[in-house]
């Protein structure tokens, strides 16, 4: 994703003089190609995220589209108020790019785990939140985001993620991408963990005889409500899947839609990080297993014991 991101951004920047890239001293062996292609619109501001975010607002004010780049929580939480006041309130088309979302930097320790970014960024008024699952989505969404004239947050993974979609897949910002068709259960997943959801769905089709629909909800905000409601109507249950705290992220966003707008009976579970302090380190796969649990078991449980999420309509 990281590789595709910089390749696509560099290509766009050569054509579009509004595009800038600013980093807070991270991106070794990644960002160099942008700097070489458009040196005037590349800037390493040093290890100073507040200045990074404020400067991006100033650059955007002059008619530009600056991308700010860093890893994990540094370009979001460290400069959250600059994002809120200087970007969102002014409605500037700044793009915040965080690489290493979720447990990408798992062995580096808790400081480098990006597991609350969806909740934080989703709560900002006027912020678009995007987390592609593979290079195909990354390319399409970076390109389409150029038409969004307000702030956008991108959570990217690392380099070398496997493809989830075929290269010619039609990816549309704001619309969930169907990774796998299915009629029994729906996995709604976001980011790099979509691949895991896809793998578990394939396994369960063979071993458990359960046919699971897998949606990549790459645009967390604005959320594709229609895809959620359709899944609730056409399948027996929904499991949201994210490398993120169960509070405030995709699970919460889908739950909001189900609670307010869904007229169908549907079981619902959130697969994510429990709200408790942890000190565990390890690679991404290990941390997913230890901290997020077993997706298949959670899914089997929901099939055996459907939990009725909503029957009462608030609006009635």
């Amino acid at each position: 994703m990281r590789t595709m991101f910089i390749k696509e951004l560099t290509k766009l920047a050569i054509e579009d003089p509004r595009i800038w890239l600013l980093t807070a001293d991270l991106g070794y062996s990644v960002l160099e190609q942008f700097e070489e292609a458009v040196p005037d619109r590349y800037m390493n501001v040093g290890v100073a995220e507040q200045n990074l975010a404020g400067m991006a607002a100033g650059i955007a004010h002059c008619g530009n589209i600056p991308f700010i780049y860093s890893i994990a929580n540094f370009p979001t939480m460290r400069c959250l108020e600059q994002i809120r006041n200087d970007m969102c309130y002014h409605g500037y088309p700044v793009r915040i790019v965080s690489v290493g979302g979720g447990f990408s930097y798992g062995s580096q320790g808790y400081t480098h785990h990006g597991v609350e970014d969806f909740a934080v960024m989703r709560s900002l008024l006027g912020m678009t939140v995007i987390a592609p699952c593979d290079p195909v989505e990354t390319k399409a969404l970076i390109e389409q985001s150029m038409h969004v004239d307000t702030p956008v947050y991108f959570r990217l993974g690392k380099a070398g993620e496997p493809l989830v979609h075929p290269e010619d897949a039609q990816i549309q910002l704001g619309r969930a991408a169907v990774v796998r068709n299915g009629t029994d259960l729906t996995f709604i997943a976001i980011g790099a963990i979509v691949k895991h959801a896809q793998d578990v769905a394939e396994y369960m089709a063979v071993h458990d005889g359960i046919n699971i629909r897998v949606l990549s909800m790459h645009t967390l905000k604005p959320l594709d409500k229609e895809a959620v409601l359709k899944a609730a109507k056409e399948t027996q249950g929904i499991v949201t899947i994210e490398e993120h705290s169960i509070t405030g992220g995709l699970g919460s966003a889908v739950a909001e839609v189900l609670a307010e707008d869904c007229e169908d009976k549907v079981s619902f579970q959130r697969y994510g990080l429990a709200d408790q302090k942890y000190s565990l380190i390890g690679d991404q796969k290990f941390l997913r297993e230890c901290l997020l649990g077993d997706l298949r078991q959670k899914s089997l449980k929901i099939m055996k014991n459907p939990i009725v999420f909503t029957e009462v309509k608030i609006n009635e």
């Binding site: 800038w20 404020g54 400067m55 607002a57 100033g58 650059i59 108020e81």
Partner: peptide, 16 residues
């Protein structure tokens, strides 16, 4: 209104 925001913004404008 929140303090410490103006100068970073000014740096961005000046650079652009």
């Amino acid at each position: 209104g929140s303090l410490g925001h103006g100068l970073p913004i000014a740096c961005g404008v000046a650079l652009a």
